[in-house]
C-alpha cells in the first residue's frame, strides 16, 4: 500500500467497464471542507476528464451519486472527506449489485423495471368536498416518501447483491417500502398483500437490516415498512384466526395477484400497445 504524505490525498478509483477494470491511483492536495464528490470532480477536471461519475444535485437530494467508499455504500456528495481516514488511501468503487457501465457508473435499470410492476395508487371516488386525511394518517407514508431513490438499499441488500438470480422475483427494499406506503395510504383501495408475497418476493428478506443501515434519508425500511408488510401478509395467509374472522364476518376475499396486476405500469403499457395494434 502506497504511503500518503500529509496534506495529500491518495484516491483509488475503480476504473473500467464491462470488460474489466482495476483501481487507479490519483494523488492530489487535500483541501478544507470537501466532500468525496468534490475530490472526484477535481480529478475529473484535471487528470481524467473522461472519468465517469453520476451526480446531479450535490446536495443529497437526488440520489444520483451512490457509490462504495472504502467498501461502504454511501452518497459521494454527502460524505465529508474529514470523516474518512485520509492518512490512508481512500477507495471508491461502483455499486456492486448493478452491472457496470463505466468507472463509477452502473446500470440501475433493474429498479425501474420493478417500479413498472408496482400496482399503482388507486383511490376511491372523490367526495364532493374533497378528500380528507389527517396528519396522523399520512405520517407513516411520508417517511417512505422521503426516499430519494439512491438505490443504496437495493445495492446493499444481500438477497440480490449476493444472489443475483433473485432479481427476477424480488423487488428489493426500496420497492417494499413503496408498497408499504401504498398499503398504508389512507385513500388507497387495493389489497396488494398476495402480490407482495408472491410477485414482489417479500419472503426473501431476512430482515438483517442492512438497507436501514445505509439509507441516507434515515428511513426505517425494515422496522417500519418490511416487517409491517410481513405482518400484513401473515394476517392474510398464515393466520387461521384472521381467516376464520373474515369468513364469519363475510369480509371480501383478499385480492389475488391477478386482481391487482392490471393496475401496474407494465400492464398499462401492454394495453396501450395492444390498442395501437388493433387500430
Amino acid at each position: 500500500m502506497s504511503a500518503v504524505s500529509t496534506g495529500e490525498l491518495l484516491m483509488k478509483l475503480w476504473r473500467g467497464d464491462a470488460s474489466g477494470g482495476d483501481f487507479v491511483e490519483y494523488r492530489l492536495p487535500a483541501q478544507e471542507g470537501e466532500v468525496v464528490l468534490d475530490v472526484v470532480h477535481r480529478i475529473q477536471a484535471t487528470e481524467a476528464p473522461d472519468l465517469a461519475v453520476r451526480w446531479n444535485c450535490k446536495a443529497g437530494k437526488c440520489g444520483s451519486c451512490s457509490a462504495e467508499i472504502n467498501g461502504q455504500p454511501r452518497l459521494m456528495c454527502m460524505t465529508r472527506m474529514s470523516t474518512l481516514p485520509i492518512d490512508e488511501p481512500i477507495t471508491i468503487s461502483p455499486m456492486r449489485t448493478f452491472p457496470v457501465i463505466r468507472d463509477l457508473v452502473t446500470d440501475v435499470s433493474y429498479n425501474y423495471e420493478v417500479a413498472k410492476l408496482i400496482p399503482s395508487f388507486t383511490p376511491g371516488p372523490r367526495p364532493a368536498e374533497g378528500y380528507r386525511m389527517f396528519q396522523v394518517d399520512v405520517e407513516r407514508g411520508q417517511e417512505f416518501r422521503k426516499c430519494i431513490e439512491c438505490f443504496l438499499c437495493q445495492n446493499v441488500c444481500h438477497v440480490i447483491r449476493d444472489h443475483e438470480e433473485n432479481k427476477a422475483h424480488y423487488a428489493g427494499p426500496r420497492f417494499l417500502a413503496r408498497l408499504a406506503e401504498l398499503e398504508m395510504h389512507p385513500l388507497d383501495t387495493l389489497d396488494r398483500r398476495a402480490y407482495i408475497a408472491e410477485r414482489m418476493g417479500l419472503g426473501y428478506c431476512n430482515i438483517t437490516k442492512c438497507c436501514t443501515e445505509v439509507c441516507p434519508e434515515g428511513i426505517h425500511i425494515t422496522d417500519n415498512a418490511i416487517i409491517p408488510l410481513k405482518e400484513r401478509v401473515v394476517d392474510q395467509r398464515y393466520d387461521p384466526v384472521a381467516w376464520l374472522g373474515r369468513k364469519i364476518r363475510g369480509r371480501p376475499r383478499p385480492m389475488t395477484p391477478a386482481d391487482v396486476e392490471p393496475y401496474t405500469g407494465a400492464a398499462a403499457k401492454a394495453a396501450r400497445a395492444g390498442q395501437a395494434e388493433a387500430s
Binding site: K61, Y112, A115, K116, I118, S120, F121, R145, K146, C147, I148, Y263, T264, G265, A266, A267, A268, K269, A270, A271, R272
Partner: peptide, 18 residues
C-alpha cells in the same frame, strides 16, 4: 421531491415510455 415522485409514479402507472 413529493411533486416529482407523485407525477413520476403516475406517469409510470400510465405506462409511459421514458
Amino acid at each position: 421531491l413529493e411533486l416529482i415522485r407523485t407525477t413520476q409514479q403516475r406517469a409510470v402507472g400510465l405506462g409511459i415510455d421514458v
